[in-house]
Design a protein around this nucleic acid. Sequence first.
DNA 1: CGGGAACTGTCAGCGAGGTGACACCATCGG
DNA 2: CCGATGGTGTCACCTCGCTGACAGTTCCCG
Lengths: 248, 248
Amino acid sequence: MRLSRWSEALRTARAGSVTADAPVRDAAWVARCVGRGTNAPLAPADVAALAATLQPVELAAGQPLFGASTRSEPGVWIIRSGHVELSVTAGRNPVVVGVLRPGDVEGDIPLLLGLALPYAARAVDAVTCLHLRPADFEDLLARHPAIARRWLSSVAQRLAASHERLIALLGRPLPAQLAGLLLDEADHDPDGGGVVRLPQRTLAAMLGVARPSLNKILKDFERNGHVEVGYSAVRLIDVGALQRIRSA
Amino acid sequence: MRLSRWSEALRTARAGSVTADAPVRDAAWVARCVGRGTNAPLAPADVAALAATLQPVELAAGQPLFGASTRSEPGVWIIRSGHVELSVTAGRNPVVVGVLRPGDVEGDIPLLLGLALPYAARAVDAVTCLHLRPADFEDLLARHPAIARRWLSSVAQRLAASHERLIALLGRPLPAQLAGLLLDEADHDPDGGGVVRLPQRTLAAMLGVARPSLNKILKDFERNGHVEVGYSAVRLIDVGALQRIRSA
DNA sequence: CGGGAACTGTCAGCGAGGTGACACCATCGG
DNA sequence: CCGATGGTGTCACCTCGCTGACAGTTCCCG
């Protein structure tokens, strides 16, 4: 069963390269991406334990990982490829709390605290991720201090990012907020510049702002040659200028 | 040396009750307040290790724990009594990222990630706190898996709170934001109602908003009998009404 | 008890951003 | 190849909260 899910998971990511050591390779990838290596190195035994419990899962665009309504299977998800949108529909318009990208982790906080998160998660595009069942997660933390230590640094990282997000949003003009968001959310392409592959509706929801307001600023940026606006994508042209606007 | 700092620390907190087991009592208090007990119980040996390393420190009102300028001694602080304001002076007006109250922890994130936090901390009123030196902190985490596990739940708690703060701020009208802030920050008095003992300037900075705007809403609340505005204090009268406004 | 510092209360004018609506365009499935 | 879906570009109107300023009040320390 696991191998069939594996091959399905890898079909999109890198077709045809399914080998027996794929679980170990993914566990090593998790070890590299979750938290920080300094001060919290993982021993081979820890990586092996990870490899034994990680369950690959594939999601189509639009599919929910979990939601206020569905409350589907709990556990920890680690994004391997694709994007997941965390949103909450409080008040009038939906607000996007964050966007998960490859290497990001979700679902561990509810397990650690024993309470449900107030937001829903849905795949923006096709998503490959690794799943850890609640019991396996607790077990890994209890039996592998190095993993617990590493997870601590992962959560700490997310907390620092969340604080920076608060600072970037509070009482700042919209252009500064948008510049910061674009710089933070850009996927760094090999060609040098970054691209934000999200519709303007999502970007607006991430700033808690109306789409027309966002579009106005975005077109200003484009007129000044700072970005290039495409369909469901924004390409960063002049990173320096955006940084200047962010801290204006 | 340690005992002398102890007696100094306790002079304000509870004068005259200094006994030999005070460190153990404070360690037990930390064990109760940091993180969640369920899923992460601490053994007596863990509490003893905490008691051996906690260093009591006392701060006068206005004194900084650390700051962008001073960069004073690093380490972990656990607030025992009083309030500490975390603020950052980005752009025009200062923004308050959060207010630490008794039981809150600060300074562990920079240690875990090896990078400085972008905000400064200063005592709002007289503060008693417990200090943990960087080396001692690392040592506790490495040698006591239960403490690492418990710390994980503490950081997770803070992350959830930070996410809720983001949700409460993004794209919501000012009255809803203020109602949420008051409900979150109220110190629950024994007499039933809660009190927020912070000047309006600080409350405004926490919402990234101008003081006159905040004052306007606050007086509206008072006119409608929801709160009672005092000098550097807001008393909550009708909690139900505030909850209704928060989710309006 | 008196003076300075900090906090609160309030106002008029202005600009940023929300609202709702509508035309146009990319993308994808049939 | 065509139509449905969903994303983008833009507009006129209007509300909300900012700006800067000033007067009154409370607190605290000498």
